[in-house]
Design a protein around this nucleic acid. Sequence first.
DNA 1: CGGTGCGTTGACATTTCTCAACTGTTGTGG
DNA 2: CCACAACAGTTGAGAAATGTCAACGCACCG
Lengths: 236, 236
Amino acid sequence: MSDGEVLQFLSRLPHFRGLPRELVGEVAKFARVRSVELGETIFLQGEACTAFYAVRRGGVRVFRTSSEGREQVLHHIRPGQSFAEAAALTLSSYPASAQAVERDTELVKVPAEPFSKLIEREPRLTVGMVASLSTWLLGLVGRIEELSISSAPARLAHHLLSLPSRERDGHAVIQLPMTKKELAGHLAIAPETLSRILRAWKDRGVAESDGSELHVHDSRVLEALADGGRSEIRAT
Amino acid sequence: MSDGEVLQFLSRLPHFRGLPRELVGEVAKFARVRSVELGETIFLQGEACTAFYAVRRGGVRVFRTSSEGREQVLHHIRPGQSFAEAAALTLSSYPASAQAVERDTELVKVPAEPFSKLIEREPRLTVGMVASLSTWLLGLVGRIEELSISSAPARLAHHLLSLPSRERDGHAVIQLPMTKKELAGHLAIAPETLSRILRAWKDRGVAESDGSELHVHDSRVLEALADGGRSEIRAT
DNA sequence: CGGTGCGTTGACATTTCTCAACTGTTGTGG
DNA sequence: CCACAACAGTTGAGAAATGTCAACGCACCG
């Protein structure tokens, strides 16, 4: 990836969108491309905070590990999104770990130290940072709401509806951005439970999973589930 | 509360701590005191975002209501803390509702419009805002981790350990900042389940609830629970 | 003094997890 | 190029945890 591409990529990030080209250029000067393999660790929870990252290609999962070994997925970062900005700006060590979940994942790494200095000089940058931090906040609020839905099918439905879908042959197709095991971790349910819910939906003609694609035949049932919890499906 | 008190109160908030007195004074000029009664609504989810708030006395809960009526508590705000800054700065409507949970709750209201203008003029303010947004982010990440702990006793233990405690007669005493019903909502469990967990802990001599106080007799069991999940207690 | 709502307890239904076995796919090394 | 290992995904059976419904005592407030 050339320097020009880095610049172009950066200016499309929520943080920098709308900022003058030369200002983003300042950031691009110390940004570095980093390629990681499937499963490679980008940083570990507790490690010194030296940079934040944006994903250019592939995918990253950000997760926390409790002292007992339990892992909770916090985010799945997809191309065009960034992560660890909050940590890089205000913390000395990463509060979570990050790992590539696709092969040939390509990151743009923005070192914290020069960036902090630049931000002090350039108040225009903080506007974008505040906006992007707020977006994270909203996203996390959404995650909390999702996790607080008690029933597993409702949680799954709610999550699926937040995913982008495209139309094909008159029904919606959702491309799952992660393996089903990871999705289960994201929703804090056992992989077996996920499998059974999908099975039940298939039997009822609601939706059918085909590899990493999910074909939704009756989106209204899904919406009812995501919303109201459990009554809707049981009645049918 | 006099203008001087408002100023002093504001300068102690995380956002403004360490800033020049005259700068905080600028904020204090348009800040207003607002008193609310127990149960009174401060703002509703979806309402136009006109201000953010700091709690001077009493307590506030911030919660989301799903279209079906389910309520999830996002935060409990206590004196010295603030809420809705992210919304006020970047959103047009509140993403959650807020309601006083104590009688004679006293808030300091900072209108969004003059504050946004001030922040544009005064980059020094953004530093504090970014820091405080990051703190919120971390707090939410903590909540997510908490909610993703699958077992209810572990979730409760984890939460209790994050609360301030004082020593008395050789054991820790935790003052619960909310009713048990609210606490249950916070942890996304049924009030009955909470009651039963506390009962079980009392029977085992781990901790005993006395009104809104919780006397912890064996904090190590609590820590083991919060951490490892379920094995520790069952074995004992 | 009567109502309202929290907190507790019991009984029961349901959901979800756990453990275990089996399949199919993918990637690796001989 | 194939055999084998590793692992996602599925399915089944049983156990455990939690929610639901219902009843009751109790404190607080009007």
